[in-house]
Each structure stands twice: as structure tokens, then as C-alpha cells.
């Protein structure tokens, strides 16, 4: 009888499983660590362009050029609504004669309308005055900080097809009507 090779030596090898426990341990440690250090809320800052007079003590601040050519576009927030004005004139509401942008019926401010009007002004003054990026904000004493910040947002940029375009990014704050 011919020699027959052992059947035991030719059995198919069992699939070798990788030991995943060290890797699991790693993951279990790393993920909570990263989760705990992740910043849930992003913080940003709004840079302000001061009216020149307030920074008088510092050297190196540039003096205003010929003020003749400045438009001095100003947004004034009052309890009735938002006024827009320039060095020459106040833009009154053609319908009511009151604030340029009256409040909404529910008492909130109409920032989208403000944005639209500023886009309109921006296109009209293009190439004209020197300060086509600057805007002055002032408010009545009781106006909250959030409203001021929202007005700055409305004045900073406008969106076309989800792309931000520059509007009046240089914001100055004035204590005009306290």
C-alpha cells in the first residue's frame, strides 16, 4: 500500500484574527480626550475703527485726509427704527417721513432691509468719496449691545450666491446722540 500523506497536515489554515484590543484601547482613550478639548462655541472678534479724535494720545495714528470728500455714512439706531445719514443729509422714509428703516411689526429691527439699502448705497457711491468702506454707528443710550452687533453684521458684507462681498467693513462707533 502506497504512502498516503497525513490528512491532518493539509487542513486549510484557520483565518488569523488580528488582536484589536490595543487599538480599541487607544481609540477609547483618544476620542474622549479630543471630545473634551473640542471647542463647542467659536469665538470671534469685531475690529473697530475708532473715530480719530478718541485715539489722539497715540502716535502713529494717521490723521484724516481732506474731510471734504468723505461721505461719513452713519447708521443711527433709535427706539423707533434705524436712520441712515451722510455728512450732507438724513435719508428719510418716503412713506412715513420717520426713520429710514422702521421697526418690524413685532418690534424687531429690520436688518435685512438695512443690508439691502447699504448695498444700494455702496453701488451708488462707488468711485466717489474716499471712505467707501467706512461706516459710523451710533445708537440711543438704551439700545442693547446685540442690536448694535447685528447692525454691524448687516453693514459688514452682503451675500450673492452664498459668497460674501465686502460692504462697509470698517466700523466706527460714535457717541453722537446720548
Amino acid at each position: 500500500m502506497a504512502y498516503q500523506p497525513s490528512k491532518r497536515s493539509s487542513h486549510t489554515p484557520q483565518p488569523v484574527e488580528i488582536n484589536m484590543f490595543p487599538m480599541m484601547n487607544l481609540m477609547v482613550v483618544l476620542i474622549p480626550l479630543l471630545l473634551s478639548t473640542a471647542t463647542a462655541i467659536q469665538i470671534g472678534i469685531i475690529e473697530l475703527n475708532l473715530p480719530q479724535a478718541a485715539g489722539g494720545a497715540t502716535a502713529g495714528m494717521q490723521l484724516p485726509k481732506e474731510s471734504r470728500q468723505n461721505i461719513d455714512l452713519t447708521v443711527t439706531i433709535t427706539s423707533e427704527g434705524i436712520y441712515l445719514s451722510s455728512a450732507q443729509a438724513i435719508l428719510h422714509n418716503p412713506v412715513s417721513g420717520g426713520p429710514t428703516i422702521p421697526k418690524n411689526e413685532d418690534g424687531s429691527y429690520n436688518f435685512s432691509r438695512l443690508n439691502e439699502m447699504l448695498v444700494d448705497i455702496k453701488t451708488k457711491i462707488a468711485g466717489g468719496p474716499l471712505d467707501t468702506k467706512r461706516i459710523i454707528m451710533q445708537a440711543e443710550g438704551d439700545i442693547g449691545y446685540q442690536i448694535l452687533v447685528s447692525a454691524m453684521d448687516a453693514a459688514r458684507s452682503f451675500k450673492i450666491d452664498d459668497i460674501d462681498h465686502e460692504l462697509f467693513p470698517e466700523v466706527s462707533i460714535s457717541a453722537g446722540i446720548l
Partner: peptide, 10 residues
């Protein structure tokens, strides 16, 4: 301190 920045939530 004339260079002021306002801190806000994004």
C-alpha cells in the same frame, strides 16, 4: 488703548 476689539460668539 485705542485698538478695541469686541468679543462675540460666531
Amino acid at each position: 488703548y485705542p485698538n478695541m476689539r469686541l468679543v462675540v460668539y460666531q
